[in-house]
C-alpha cells in the first residue's frame, strides 16, 4: 500500500523537482496568456464576420462558417503538429518568421500560440455568437433606424451588451485553453507535464505528474467555482427580468 502511495505522492521526488515543474507551468501560463488574448480577439472578428448582413457578404459568411466548423472538428494536437511540421520548412518565408525566437521565446512556443489561437478563435467565435444572437433584433433595428451603419450598431450597441451575457462560457473556454497548453509539450516546449515526464523517465515515479496536475488544479478549480457563481448570478438577473429589454 505504501508502495502504491509513493508511486503518486513521493514528496522527495516532488520536492527535488518542484522548481523545474513550476518553471514549466509558467511556460503553460505564458502560452495561455498570449493565445487567450489572441483567441478572444480573433474569435470576435470571426463572430462579426459571420454576422455581416445582406447577400453581398454571403461568401465571407460561408468561409467564416467553414473555418469555424473545421477548426472545431479537428484535434488540436493535429493543428499543432501541422504547423510545427510545415512552417519551419517553407523556405520562401524569411527565416526569422518561419523559425521565430521573438522575445526570448523558442519556436515551439510560437507554433503553440498560433495553433491554439486558430482553434480557440473558432471556439470563442461560437461563444460570442451566442451572446450576439441573444440581443433582441429590435436593438439593431433601432440603431439602424437612427442612421448607424451595421458596423456602428455592432460596435456601440450589440457587442457591448453581448459580452455581458457570456462571461461564464468564455471562462469555461479559457479553462480548457489553459489545460490544452500542455499539448504544446509534444513539440518540445518545456511545459509542466513535459518536464514531469522527464522526471518520471528518470525516477519511474509518477509524483512529478501529480505535482504538474496539481498546479493546474490550483488555478482551474477557483475558476470553475467562479463560473458557477457567474451562472447563478446571471440566472437571478434573468429571473428579476432586468435582462429582458422591454
Amino acid at each position: 500500500m505504501n508502495e502504491f502511495f509513493n508511486q503518486f505522492f513521493d514528496f522527495t521526488v516532488m520536492g527535488d523537482h518542484f522548481d523545474e515543474v513550476l518553471d514549466g507551468f509558467f511556460r503553460n501560463l505564458l502560452v495561455f496568456a498570449l493565445a487567450g488574448a489572441l483567441a478572444l480577439a480573433w474569435g470576435l472578428v470571426l463572430a462579426l464576420l459571420r454576422q455581416l448582413p445582406s447577400k453581398k457578404f454571403l461568401p465571407v459568411r460561408g468561409i467564416t462558417i467553414a473555418y469555424i466548423d473545421v477548426f472545431r472538428a479537428i484535434p488540436i494536437l493535429g493543428v499543432i503538429l501541422l504547423i510545427s511540421g510545415s512552417i519551419p520548412y517553407l523556405e520562401f518565408i524569411p527565416k526569422d518568421i518561419r523559425i521565430p525566437h521573438w522575445f526570448g521565446q523558442p519556436d515551439p512556443y510560437w507554433y503553440g500560440v498560433l495553433a491554439l489561437t486558430l482553434v480557440y478563435g473558432a471556439y470563442m467565435a461560437e461563444v460570442y455568437r451566442a451572446g450576439i444572437e441573444a440581443i433582441p433584433r429590435g436593438q439593431i433595428e433601432a440603431a439602424r433606424s437612427l442612421g448607424m451603419s451595421h458596423g456602428q450598431a455592432m460596435r456601440h450597441v450589440v457587442v457591448p451588451q453581448a459580452v455581458t451575457k457570456i462571461p461564464a462560457p468564455m471562462l469555461n473556454e479559457l479553462i480548457s485553453l489553459l489545460k490544452d497548453t500542455t499539448l504544446v509539450g509534444v513539440i518540445a516546449l518545456g511545459e509542466a507535464l513535459l518536464i514531469a515526464r522527464e522526471v518520471q523517465a528518470e525516477t519511474f515515479n509518477a509524483s512529478a505528474y501529480v505535482l504538474g496536475c496539481a498546479m493546474f488544479l490550483v488555478v482551474c478549480l477557483p475558476a470553475a467555482r467562479l463560473v458557477d457563481y457567474l451562472i447563478k448570478r446571471n440566472q437571478t438577473k434573468v429571473a428579476r427580468g432586468s435582462h429582458i429589454a422591454v
Binding site: G147, V157, A245, V246
Partner: peptide, 15 residues
C-alpha cells in the same frame, strides 16, 4: 435614415 425617424412598439432603448 437622416430624414426619417422611427419609434417602435417595444421602445428598443439601449439598456
Amino acid at each position: 435614415r437622416q430624414r426619417v425617424g422611427m419609434v417602435f412598439q417595444q421602445f428598443n432603448l439601449f439598456p
